[in-house]
Computed example of a mutant assay.
Amino acid sequence: MSTTLGIIEGFYGPVWSWQERKQLVRTLAPHGYGFYLYAPKADAFLRRRWQEPYPSEMASELSEFGRFCRAQGMRFGVGLSPYEIFNCFDDAARAVLAEKLEMLDSLGIDELAILFDDMHADTPALAETQADIMQWVRERTQAEYLSVCPSYYSDDPVLDRVFGQRPPAYLETLGRRLDHDIQIFWTGEEVCSREISPGHLKRVSEQLGRKPVLWDNYPVNDGDRMSRHLHLRGFTGRPAANGAYLSGHGINPALQSVLTTIPAITLVESYRQGPQYQYAQAFRHAAKEVLGKELADQLHADLLVLQDTGLGRISEEKRQSLMHTYDAYDHPAASEITRWLAGEYQVTDEMVQTQ
C-alpha cells in the first residue's frame, strides 16, 4: 500500500489517557499506520494558551509517547494552533513562537504541523501571511516533516459562514508561495466528507501545486450532534484510486479509542483490496479482530441503534437494556459503549467554542 496512513488526534471534547493512545498505536501500527499527529483541541498549550510553556510533567509524557510511537514504527508529530497569530505576526508573536518551537524540538518530534483551522481571520493577504509564517517556522524547526492546515481546508461553505468569506484564489496563492516540501491538509468537499473521489483530489492537487494530505473526518464523532452517535462502520466513499492523488491519509479518530480501531482497520482493507473491498464485510472482520467473536457479533447486532439511532432517540428502556448487555463483557470497548450510553462522551457546543 503506497499511501501512508496515520492518526490525527484532532477532535474536540474529552481527552484520551496516554494508555489509551498507546493501545491505539499498538493495534494500528501492525496494520501499516505510519504516523501519529498529536493535536487534541482540549490541549490548551497547543491552542488557546499556546504562548505558555508546557508543564514539565506533560512535556515529559509527550516526549515519552513520541519515543513509544517511533519504537512501534510510527513517526510522531505535534499539531500547534498558534491562535489567530496570522492577524498580528509581530516581533512579540515571533519571540513567543520561537520559544514554543524550541520546546517542541526538545521533545524530539518528527513532524510539526501548524494548524490555522477554526480561527477567525481579519488580515487581508491571508494566504501570503500564512505562507510567510510557515517559511519563518521552517527556518527554525528541527522537525523533518512540516505541514500546514489552511484556514479554508475544504470546499464546504460552512467555513465561509462561520469564519468569514475565503479570499479569492486562497488555495492557489498558498500553494504557490509555500515551499514544495511543506505538506498541506485537506478534508475534501465537506468538512466531514461523505465521499472523497480521485477527480476531486486531482483538482485540489492542481490548485495546491502538490498532493494534499487527507485529513479525514471519519470516524470522528465530536460536537453536540455527532457525539450522540458511535461511528463504527467500515469506511465508504474512499476508493483506493485516491492514493494516486494523496501524499498521506490521516484519520481523525472517534472519541472512543478502542472502538475507533475497527473502522481504522477497514480503511487499510479498502486500499489493499481496491474494487474488491466490501465495507460491511470489512467491519465484521475488523470487529472480530479487535473485540473477539462474541462481542463483535453483539456489536454487529446493535449497529443500527448505536450508529444510526443514537442517544437522542433511544428510549430509556432500550438504553438500560444496552447498558445491561455491554456491562456483561469484560472488554475496554464494551466499557466505552456503557460510558457512551451514560452520556460520558457528550461534547457540548461550549466545549467546541472554548477549546
Score class of each variant (00 low, 15 high):
Ala264Thr: 05
Gly223Ser: 11
Thr236Glu: 10
His249Lys: 06
Gly199Thr: 00
Thr236Pro: 09
Arg225Pro: 13
Leu255Gly: 08
Ser227Phe: 09
His200Asp: 07
Arg225Tyr: 15
Asp222Trp: 12
Gly243Pro: 06
Phe235Trp: 12
Thr266Gly: 02
Arg238Phe: 04
Glu206Gly: 10
His231Met: 13
Ala264Arg: 06
Ile265Asp: 04
Ala254Met: 14
Ser270Leu: 10
Arg228Asn: 11
Phe185Ala: 05
Met226His: 15
Ser247Arg: 07
Ile251Glu: 11
Thr236Trp: 14
Ala240Gly: 01
Ile265Gly: 00
Gly223Asn: 09
Pro219Phe: 08
Ala264Met: 04
Ser257Gln: 14
Arg272Ala: 10
Tyr271Gln: 13
Cys192His: 04
Ala264Glu: 04
Gly243Ala: 12
Ile196Arg: 06
Leu259Lys: 07
Leu208Thr: 07
Ile196Glu: 00
Asn242Ile: 10
Cys192Tyr: 08
Arg238Gln: 03
Trp215Gly: 07
Leu208Asn: 05
Gly234Thr: 08
Arg194Pro: 12
Arg233Lys: 12
Asp216Ile: 00
Gly234Trp: 05
Glu195Thr: 00
Asp224His: 15
Val268Ala: 03
Arg225Leu: 12
Ser270Glu: 08
Pro239His: 02
Gln256Asn: 11
Glu269His: 03
Lys211Ser: 04
Gly223Val: 09
Ala244Arg: 11
Ser227Asp: 03
His231Arg: 13
Ser270Cys: 12
Arg228Val: 01
His180Asn: 15
Leu232Lys: 03
Lys211Gln: 13
Thr236Arg: 09
Gly248Asn: 02
Ile184Glu: 03
Gly199Trp: 09
Gly237Asn: 04
Ile182Pro: 04
Asn252Trp: 14
Gly199Ile: 00
Arg194Asn: 06
Cys192Asp: 01
Leu208Arg: 02
Asp216Lys: 09
Gln256Lys: 14
Leu214Tyr: 11
Pro239Cys: 01
Glu269Val: 00
Pro219Asp: 14
Arg233Gln: 04
Ile251Pro: 12
Asn242Thr: 11
Ala241Asp: 10
Ala244His: 11
Pro219Thr: 04
Asp179Trp: 15
Phe185Tyr: 13
Asp216Arg: 12
Gly237His: 03
Asp179Arg: 15
Arg210Thr: 05
Gly209Cys: 06
Asp181Arg: 15
Gly223Trp: 09
Ala244Ser: 08
Leu255Thr: 06
Ile184Gly: 05
Gly243Val: 11
Tyr218Arg: 13
Arg272Gly: 06
Ala241Trp: 03
Asp224Val: 15
Ser270Trp: 02
Pro219Asn: 05
Ile182Ala: 02
Phe185Trp: 13
Ala264Leu: 06
Ile196Phe: 03
Ser257Glu: 11
Asp222Leu: 12
Trp215Asp: 06
Ser257Cys: 12
Tyr218Cys: 07
Trp215Phe: 15
Ser205Arg: 13
Val258Leu: 05
Ile251His: 13
Asn221Lys: 13
Lys202Glu: 14
Leu214Glu: 07
Asp222Thr: 07
Leu246Phe: 07
His231Asp: 04
Leu255Cys: 10
Ala240Gln: 03
Val268Lys: 10
Ile182Val: 14
Trp215Asn: 06
Leu201Ala: 01
Gly199Gln: 14
Val258Cys: 09
Gly248Val: 10
Leu230Tyr: 01
